[in-house]
Design a protein around this nucleic acid. Sequence first.
DNA 1: TAAGCCAATACAAACGTTTGCAGGAAATAG
DNA 2: CTATTTCCTGCAAACGTTTGTATTGGCTTA
Lengths: 342, 342
Amino acid sequence: MGKRVTIQDLAKELDTTPSTISRALHDHPGISKTMTKKVKELAKKRNYRVNSVASSLRAGKSKTIGVIVPMINRDFFANVISGIEDVAFQNGFNVIICQSDNKVEKEIQHINTLISSGVAGVLVSLGFDTTDYAPFNKISQLGIPLIFFDRAPEHEKSIKIVNNDKAGAYKAVKHLIEMGYQRIAHLCGPSNLPLYKERKEGYLDALRDAGLPVEERLIITHNLTREAGYNITKKLMKYKNPPDAIFSASDYSALGALLYLKEERIKVPEEVGIVGFSNEGFTKLTGPELSTVDQHGKEIGKYSAKVFFEEMASDVFIPRTIILDPKLIVRRSSLRNQKLSD
Amino acid sequence: MGKRVTIQDLAKELDTTPSTISRALHDHPGISKTMTKKVKELAKKRNYRVNSVASSLRAGKSKTIGVIVPMINRDFFANVISGIEDVAFQNGFNVIICQSDNKVEKEIQHINTLISSGVAGVLVSLGFDTTDYAPFNKISQLGIPLIFFDRAPEHEKSIKIVNNDKAGAYKAVKHLIEMGYQRIAHLCGPSNLPLYKERKEGYLDALRDAGLPVEERLIITHNLTREAGYNITKKLMKYKNPPDAIFSASDYSALGALLYLKEERIKVPEEVGIVGFSNEGFTKLTGPELSTVDQHGKEIGKYSAKVFFEEMASDVFIPRTIILDPKLIVRRSSLRNQKLSD
DNA sequence: TAAGCCAATACAAACGTTTGCAGGAAATAG
DNA sequence: CTATTTCCTGCAAACGTTTGTATTGGCTTA
């Protein structure tokens, strides 16, 4: 259980002072070459490591980024975090992760501990039910860069990095229409979150542009789980005029839909087409593979981290929204016309 | 850009001293009820939050756990991290995540920054190539609890939480044999990592116990990727006496195998059976679904975190290995006898 | 040779919290 | 009314680093 080596130990050993050691280690020009060299050698020899808690206290902030996501064990978020960590590492920063479980109280608690621990910045993807952004304002009020990704507040003046959900949804539904589907259902998420609202709008626009009627009974709000997808599809397929395609705001519920249809021997894509959203890892592995909309999570993570570093460097705050264009990925579940071999 | 409110601000406002404030906030018995109440009210009113950087410096360590994994965006690790975060949160701790990309240098660098940032403990799953554990010893030498999970060093005196890989592999191969497969190939991982070594041993034991011959040409070491699985299977199937089953140490390469076989119209499980390892999320979604061995990642994460807190509480270090029993999950890819409907 | 200057290093304060110890007032005992 | 105890609060140091300012010694210059 060796004691940690401090700058003071080095100073004593070289018969000098902590300030000289500190400056030498930072290549301060006011320190002679010889001294700098001596210090660095001793530091290596004694295996000295800065106590960054101390420097953080001195500096008023630490080299740490806080990340708050609903849950870590989701392909998309795991990718985002991975991307964030990559960029943070390159810049010598650490990443603290917090999962909110979509619970507002947890978000608030995480915000508090992150502020407490002096993070240099916070990257957030909001939970389902978050409608009050005041807790987040505290972060910005303290001058800590705050960046939203994916699930961002709608009207707030803030920095957001989001997918163009509307465009993504539009592409998906347009594609279904082109494949000849006529009664396209939409499993949508809670509309207090802009991204779900936008996906719905993209869906509606695509229908309208194609001159197709909008049927309210085919638009169902749900919690984006596989189970919900399964149950809703069961309900939908019992309508007198059941849908012939499903566009879901989530791959998970799209998967639920697929599983129900397979169970009922309703052929996908021949009888019912499906397009999901997010390009979760499993979508290219289902039978048939799920068409979906790719959000390139890792890129969003990297991008968000980069924006954070930009923000930290500059001292003027400019609210802005960066919109990345998602990509429609067409797989078997929506390819009605072509016959792909099994 | 409001200034942070400190304990001193509160002291000034109540015309008392920082020490009293600190004690009051911690419900120190030596402080009167009335004072304690006054302090807490003011603290809430002024929105006071401890500066945990300062307390960490004072205490010599922070309420933070460091986690090092090869990569975050893998189902298993994402689950482990999620489990760790859950338990950490309950105990008021934060989690710093670091990905090593299976690179030794990155591991070392992460170790250094974690020590620098004064983490209270470190949880690690080793990278492929890590054979020198000296950098990790530094952690324990500083009295910081160090816990390995999943990929742990073999002989070191340390705390490890691992799956019983041998038993898992044994179950998997035994199952294949019971299904009537005779020439079972094994795609194994680098054997410097005990868990892959053990999986291989389980495989060998199962063969021997069943009186089946061990064929070296059917045992292939690879890097556990889908691509490798694909290519190796291609090679294997071109043998004069190709295998009739594949047991892979990784779901990813099992998937690669499956994809190759599908491409070649070789029927799974009728002609070739497959069992993977890890129960990655996608395995229940392939066509046919992949049999696999479940490692319950979230549980391992929770367990590891709990062990860390135990370790922090106690002051005697007892090296020990906690072995969790993995579970064979039989799905279609290895069910040769029964006919399941599609 | 003294004044001035530069380079190199030392001094000291600060970041915010925690905590052992000291001290003062009130309360109880004698 | 004094002595002792009890209860509460204040004082001051410490954690390790960083940085503005002071200080030292050696050197140049007039």
